[in-house]
Design a protein around this nucleic acid. Structure first.
Length: 329
DNA sequence: TTGTGTTTTATTGCCTCC
DNA sequence: GGAGGCAATAAAACACAA
């Protein structure tokens, strides 16, 4: 559209240029080639087939600075190649390889074009300053596109890298999650196992306790003449007395002086002083301590009193000893 | 040779800066 | 308001396969 319009008006411009050239030729040798209208005499790019823009002939924007005739006025003139331009005015001409290389080099140094540089390049390349400006503009556009592609690739690579890392982390997380679940399961199983073991233990303990109590009751009720009451049997002082009674009759004689004297005293009621029943629990405990034969019964301070007194028929003995000392009665 | 896609040159209109 | 840059676009030039 834009380009087409330019060339649709080309014939009119062409006639203007022809006229101008004609006028120019009136003052210049007719042997001068047309190319030199646009090329510096010192240009290494003589013979360029670069297309001529007629925009400035039309008085396009930018004013006189962009004038086709400005270039014409500045540059040397010549006739060679004139036919080429004016027989194919509508044709675009590509820059030669040398021109492009020169422009590329210049672009690498600086991608912006100052007016002085533009003029110099145009002069050196035998191009219009406008052409040089257009080339730089298009080159910047290409560079920008390339840069965008590069940036996109960099970002894409970065994204891929991050995504791979993220995926790895997700996998690791799942692995750890599974590990935690497995360990939790193991812990729960172990706790369950321990719980059932404890329950079995307590059940055993209960049945053994029951059995020992039964045995105790039986042994007590069998001994009718015993001074030991069933209720008192569960009290430590009473049990101690009962033990003394039992020991008096069944147990081997002690060599312990105190007990021997006591036993020798013949009066087992000695240990059952009526007054002592009125003693406080602490006093009773102390008394019991003093009366207990340490080599048969455990020291009372070692006895577990965690059980309530009424159920303390085990006397703090380990469950496995209950049967033994129950048998001892 | 021709159709088609890509590249290059150039234009246009808009915008910003001075 | 002029100069110049930029995005969008046109169109010629070019490359290449069929």
């Amino acid at each position: 559209m834009a380009g087409g319009r330019l060339f649709s008006t080309a014939p009119a411009n062409l006639s203007n240029i022809t006229l101008l050239l004609h006028n120019n030729n009136q003052t210049a040798p007719s042997s001068q080639p047309l190319d030199s209208l646009f090329l510096s005499s010192s240009s290494p790019f003589l013979g360029s087939r670069s297309m001529v823009s007629f925009e400035d002939v039309q008085g396009g924007k930018g004013g006189g600075n962009r004038s086709f005739f400005h270039a014409f006025d500045v540059d040397e003139n010549g006739d060679e190649g004139m036919d080429e331009y004016f027989h194919q005015p509508e044709k675009k001409r590509r820059l030669s390889v040398e021109q492009v290389q020169f422009l590329e080099k210049s672009f690498e140094e600086e991608n912006k074009l100052e007016p002085e540089r533009k003029s110099k390049l145009a002069k050196d390349l035998g191009l219009q300053p406008r052409q040089v400006a257009i080339w730089f503009q298009n080159r910047r556009a290409r560079w920008k596109t390339k840069q965008l592609e590069k940036d996109y690739e960099t970002l894409h690579a970065s994204f891929d890298n991050l995504k791979a890392n993220y995926d790895n982390l997700l996998k690791e997380k799942d692995k750890l999650k599974a590990e935690v679940a497995s360990l939790t399961e193991k812990v729960l199983a172990r706790e369950k196992q321990e719980g059932s073991l404890k329950q079995a233990e307590s059940e055993t303990k209960g049945s053994m306790q029951e059995a020992s109590e039964k045995a105790l009751h039986e042994s007590i009720s069998e001994g009718e003449g015993s001074k030991v009451s069933v209720i008192g049997a569960c009290k430590q002082e009473d049990i101690s007395s009962a033990r003394s009674d039992i020991l008096d009759s069944d147990s081997p004689h002690y060599t312990d002086g105190v007990h021997s004297s006591l036993l020798e005293h013949g009066d087992s009621s000695y240990v059952f002083e009526p007054d002592q029943s009125d003693l406080s629990q602490d006093e009773e405990d102390n008394l019991s301590k003093s009366l207990l034969p340490p080599y048969i019964f455990p020291k009372l301070e070692d006895v577990d009193y965690s059980d309530p007194p009424e159920n303390s028929c085990s006397f703090g003995f380990p469950e496995e000893d209950h049967a033994l000392w129950t048998w001892a009665y």
